[in-house]
Design a protein around this nucleic acid. Structure first.
Lengths: 134, 134
DNA sequence: CCATCATTTGCAGTATGACGCAAATGAACA
DNA sequence: TGTTCATTTGCGTCATACTGCAAATGATGG
């Protein structure tokens, strides 16, 4: 096929109400959270409440500390974690507000994009892979 | 290292308020949306408003129709798309409500998990990778 | 039954990502 | 300056994922 830009293929953002859905749904954000280990690190930092060093985080995880360092950097680059140096150690903490607002922003964008469908059906609870046909 | 279950590594879900954060943040959901092409397909179906056949979706995307079929199946398995057969063609549509409630559920879980940090700082707008130190 | 169309699946090639180990970098301290 | 500790990075290996092509499956119509 002709090589086009892989980013945003065909999201022909027609109406003004859904012009930013393509800007909200960033693959890098999902890519940062698509790994189970990284999810675990985020949960660990989120439940901890306070910043933790790379070593402290690595103690709770069955992978090498170098791998943890890389995972934390990925989450940091995605804006999910905050980092601060304290002497020779680096402390990571979760950017709750940013992650929460990012998630809500995506939800709002999708909802604004499809107003005709919003507010019908079972809109509560988490989704479960439904099979409309066996 | 000793081979533990890769799912949910170390999320030691201490308090009762954040006991479900590990259940909300599912890697499979993020994995389904971590590919730019799949994001494009979701946006295309979301902005379209109505169900589209695999061929219709594939026309808007510079990849082979077989690849599109696989991508749509992945999104369907993740509960992001709905499918319905009409004769010999298959129509996919976005499960707005499910995706929106999933995103909001994750946001709520994170927020409930870290109450001490909620409601401070710039909690509006999308996140941007900040570097607390250069 | 056979032909046709839409979709899915098998297969192989290539690319991306996770991982562990070892070496390098950076900061504090004697 | 040299040492020590925490963290990062280079590198090779292995697993997973994306892609296109071709064949198979499934449904409709002659």
């Amino acid at each position: 096929m002709t090589q086009m830009n892989k980013q945003n293929v065909g999201p022909r953002t027609g109406c003004a109400c859904c012009c930013d859905i393509g800007d909200r749904l960033k693959p890098d954000f999902f890519k940062a959270l698509c790994d189970p280990t990284r999810i675990g690190l985020l949960i660990q930092l989120a439940t901890s409440g306070e910043a933790q060093t790379v070593s402290q985080v690595a103690e709770q995880v069955p992978v090498d500390i170098s791998v943890v360092s890389r995972h934390l950097a990925i989450l940091r680059d995605a804006g999910i974690l905050r980092v601060q140096r304290q002497g020779k150690e680096v402390r990571y903490s979760a950017r709750y507000e940013g992650v929460v607002s990012t998630l809500r922003g995506m939800a709002d964008a999708i909802e604004a994009c499809c107003p005709s469908q919003a507010g019908r059906g079972t809109a509560t609870g988490s989704i479960e892979a439904v099979q409309d046909e066996s």
